[in-house]
Write a protein that binds this DNA or RNA. Structure first.
Lengths: 258, 258
DNA sequence: ATCAAAATCACAAGAATAATGTTATAATTT
DNA sequence: AAATTATAACATTATTCTTGTGATTTTGAT
C-alpha cells in the first residue's frame, strides 16, 4: 500500500467516524507513528482535516462544506460511472459545456475521447488537462479564479457565456432535496445557470448520496433539466414529481465501467 | 551536467548551426548515443527540432516562427532582467494585465512578489502558476485555447477585456523594426491591443535581439507605449524617433538580477 | 538485393529523489 | 513532575528517473 492510498483511507475513516486515533491507524497500516504524523500534517495543510492531540478530526470550521471536500476526494468509481453515462449523450462534433467540480473534471477526461469536440468550461482542472489535445477545441471561460472551487467565476464568466452557445451543458450539484438542487455559493449558482441558458440541452449529474441535503441557494428545479443522471434510483418523492415531466432519468452503472 | 542543461545546450547548438550531428554531440557531452536519441526524441515531441538520420535540424516547417520557438527556450537571463525592471513599475495593490508569451510568464512569477496584486491575463502558464496564491487575485481571460501560444484568444477574450480596466498592461513582442512592433498572428495582435486599450498605462517588453525583424501584422507604434523596456540600448533610428515623445525607455541590467 | 550505418527496443545498472523509520529533544496534558 | 504526544534531524530503505548495453529492426546507398 502506497502513500496516497493510505491517505485516501485515512480520509475514508474520517468520513465514517469523524475522528481517528493516531496510534490506531499507525498500527492498522503497519507504519510508524511518524509517517502518520506526516500524513496528517499534509492533509491538514490541504485543508481536509484538523490535527488534534492523539489523532485528527474533520475540520469543524465548515459543516456541509467539509463534508463536500471529503467526498471530492472519494468515490472515484461513482464519478467515473456518472461520467461514462453522461458521455453517451455526446456525439463527436458537438459543443459541450462543463461546470466546476471534481465530478466535472472526470467528465472532461472522458469526453476527450469523443473527438472532435468543443469543450467550454470554467473548470481549471479541465483546462489544464485538455489544453493542447488535438481534436479538442478548448474554450476557457475567464473570470476571477476561486481556489475553493478551482474554477473561474464572476461577471466576466457570465458575459462570456452569454456570447456562447453549446449543444449540451453538464451541471453537477453537491446537494438536492425534493425536486430542487442547491449550492452554497451564489457566484457558482450564477455561472451554472448561465451555462444552462446558453445550451440547447441540459443534463444534471448528481451523486445519489447528495440527495436529502440542502444549501443556501437554490440552483434549479430538477424538472428544468432534459436529463438527470445519478448512480442509484432517485428518492421516491423526487422521482414521482419528475415522472410526468419531460425530464429523462438515467442511472449509471458502476460495474460496466468501460 | 544534467539532463536539462544538456538539452538546452543542444538547442543552442542548433540555433547556431541549424543542424547537429548525433555522434558529434554524444562525444561532446560524453554520453551514449542512446541518451542523445532520447533527448532528440523528446525535443522533437516538444516541437523544437526535427530528427533526421544521423542528427537533427531545426524544424523547417516555419521560418521565423521556429526561430521564435527556440528563443522561447533560451535567454532566461534576459527575460528575468526585463521582468525585474518591469516589476519596478508595479506597486502593491495595483491591477496588472499580462499578455501571452514566455517572457510574460516570467513576469508573472516576479509580480507575484508584489502582493497584494490583481493580475489579469490570457496566458495559461501564468494562470497555472499563480492560481491559489494568497495575495494574488487572478482574473483569467477566457477564449479559445491556442496550443501554439499557450494562451486564450478570440472574441471572448476581447469582450472580457472590454469590461475590465487595469493600472498597467505589459505587452511583449517578438519583432520590431523602426518604430513599429510586429506580430505574425492576428488574433494575438487583437488581444494585445485590447489590453492596451483597457489599461491606464502601457509598457512594451522587448528583447533587443528582436529588433530588425518584422512580421505580418503591425502590433503598435512604440510611441504608443508609456514605457519601453529592453535589455540593450535601442537601435539609433528607433531611439531617435522616440526621443521627443512621451515614451520612456528603460534598459534592463542582466547583472544586477535580484 | 545486400550491406553497413543508424535507429529502436527491452532490459539492467546506476544515480537521484522520495518515503519511511529511528532516535533524541521539546511541548502538552494530567 | 511523570507520562504521553509532537517535532526535528538524521539514517535507512523504496521508488523513480536516467543512462547504458546489447540484441534486433529499419533505413539508405550501392
Amino acid at each position: 500500500m502506497k502513500r496516497e492510498e493510505r491517505r485516501q483511507e485515512i480520509i475514508n475513516l474520517l468520513v465514517e467516524s469523524r475522528a481517528v486515533d493516531l496510534d490506531d491507524i499507525a498500527a492498522r497500516f503497519g507504519v510508524s507513528k511518524m509517517t502518520i504524523h506526516r500524513d496528517l500534517d499534509d492533509l491538514e495543510r490541504a485543508g481536509v482535516l484538523r490535527k488534534v492531540r492523539g489523532g485528527a478530526t474533520i475540520d469543524p470550521g465548515t459543516r456541509f462544506e467539509s463534508d463536500f471536500r471529503f467526498r471530492e476526494l472519494q468515490e472515484a468509481d461513482v464519478k467515473r460511472a456518472l461520467a461514462e453515462t453522461a458521455a453517451d449523450l455526446v456525439e463527436p462534433g458537438m459543443t459541450v459545456m462543463i461546470n466546476d467540480g471534481s465530478m466535472a473534471s472526470v467528465l472532461g477526461d472522458v469526453l476527450a475521447e469523443k473527438k472532435p469536440v468543443t469543450i467550454i468550461t470554467n473548470n481549471a482542472a479541465i483546462m489544464e488537462r485538455l489544453k493542447g489535445l488535438s481534436g479538442v477545441t478548448l474554450i476557457g471561460l475567464g473570470g476571477i479564479y476561486s481556489a475553493k472551487f478551482n474554477a473561474y467565476f464572476g461577471i466576466v464568466t457570465e458575459e462570456a457565456l452569454s456570447r456562447l452557445r453549446a449543444d449540451i451543458a453538464f451541471i453537477s450539484t453537491p446537494a438536492a432535496s425534493g425536486r430542487l438542487a442547491y449550492h452554497m455559493d451564489e457566484a457558482v449558482v450564477r455561472t451554472k445557470r448561465a451555462m444552462m441558458t446558453s445550451s440547447r440541452r441540459t443534463c444534471l449529474l448528481i451523486n445519489s448520496r447528495r440527495f436529502g441535503h440542502t444549501a443556501l441557494h437554490v440552483l434549479a428545479d430538477l424538472a428544468e433539466f432534459d436529463t438527470v443522471i445519478s448512480d442509484k434510483a432517485l428518492p421516491h418523492d423526487t422521482s414521482a414529481d419528475l415522472a410526468d415531466g419531460k425530464t429523462a432519468v438515467r442511472i449509471a452503472n458502476k460495474e460496466k465501467t468501460t
